[in-house]
């Protein structure tokens, strides 16, 4: 059951002199099982976009279909939608409110009407999936480190057992290792649990290594929607949108211009090193 956005527009302050077109005719099909990256400059509409996917914002015009049903229908059960499409906001640790981690993770499944036993089982499973340290399950939220809080918050959404998991800047404010750990964890969720992942980021480098499809948002429109290699080949256009292409790709591009036989579509520094090494040794 794919998620379909059909000619979705969102206009804020429509009745004032300064209407803001946050989304402008967005058409997307998100089939199950994909790992998608959504990138865009601040204000490009990416946050607005993802909130349409689980009915937190309804389109001004156009439709969002989930499971073949229009989510704007009056009798459509939004709670049911939110169970299937989990959304983890930016700095999700700011939403923690219960006395201990475990209780907080239980909040979602409890709201979904699961029985006590199901709820606790789901919470355990979710905490395990985000590799939250076991000895801290019943710790107070205030005793946790930044990275641990974030894991707990992600578990809180995961415990509802969503089929789609949307994460808005899950690595914001973390240090490099913390960033890698979270991204690896998300990638593992996709691989082992088969959850469809939509990763929102303004950092190309985060996204490049993991995703199979990149959606680039610019001024409320979908600027590109393709595999990472293809998207990053539009480096000049991306830079105009305020997005920097990953540094490895920037370097190989520069070398290509200077006559080296390197691959301009590399995504990681190891790939870049390999490609440059090949070019250098071939010339010899």
């Amino acid at each position: 059951m794919p998620l379909i956005l059909d000619h979705v527009c969102q206009i804020y302050n429509a009745d004032t002199e300064t209407p803001v077109k946050a989304l402008d005719d967005v058409n997307l099909v998100i089939p199950e099982g994909q790992f998608i990256g959504v990138i865009g400059h601040t204000g490009s509409g990416k946050s607005t976009l993802i909130q349409h996917m689980n009915g937190l914002i309804l389109p001004t015009s156009g439709s969002v279909y989930f499971n073949g049903r229009d989510i704007t229908d009056k009798d459509f059960d939004k709670k049911e939608l939110r169970k299937h499409v989990g959304l983890v906001f930016q700095y999700p640790e700011h939403q923690l409110f219960e006395t201990d981690v475990f209780e907080d993770v239980c909040f979602g499944p409890k709201n979904m009407g699961m029985s006590k036993k199901e709820t606790e089982l789901a919470a355990f499973e979710a905490l395990r999936k985000v590799s939250f340290p076991e000895d801290l399950y019943y710790a107070s939220v205030f005793e946790l480190s930044g990275g641990q809080k974030r894991r707990a918050a992600i578990a809180g959404v995961l415990a509802m057992k969503p089929d789609f998991l949307i994460l808005d800047e899950p690595t914001a404010g973390l240090d490099p290792v913390g960033r890698c750990e979270i991204l690896d964890m998300v990638s593992e969720l996709h691989r082992s649990a088969g959850i469809t992942i939509i990763l929102v980021s303004h950092s190309m480098e985060d996204v490049a290594m993991y995703v199979e499809r990149v959606i680039v948002m610019d001024k409320g429109r979908v600027a590109y929607d393709d595999v990472p290699r293809e998207v990053f080949s539009h480096s000049e256009e991306l830079e105009q949108m305020g997005l920097a292409i990953p540094e490895p790709a920037k370097i190989t591009r520069e070398l290509l211009k200077r006559g080296f036989d390197v691959d301009p579509g590399v995504l990681t520094s190891s790939e870049a090193a390999d490609s440059i090494y090949k070019a250098l040794t071939k010339n010899r």
Partner: peptide, 29 residues
């Protein structure tokens, strides 16, 4: 509020007591 809505919170249905209780997950954070 949106983050808690995404976790299935319900701020609209129920009587006043239930509505007030539903605000705890918003007020604490």
């Amino acid at each position: 509020m949106k983050a808690q809505l995404a976790r299935g919170a319900d701020f609209e249905s129920g009587n006043i007591v239930k509505k007030a209780k539903a605000l705890v997950p918003v007020l604490v954070p």
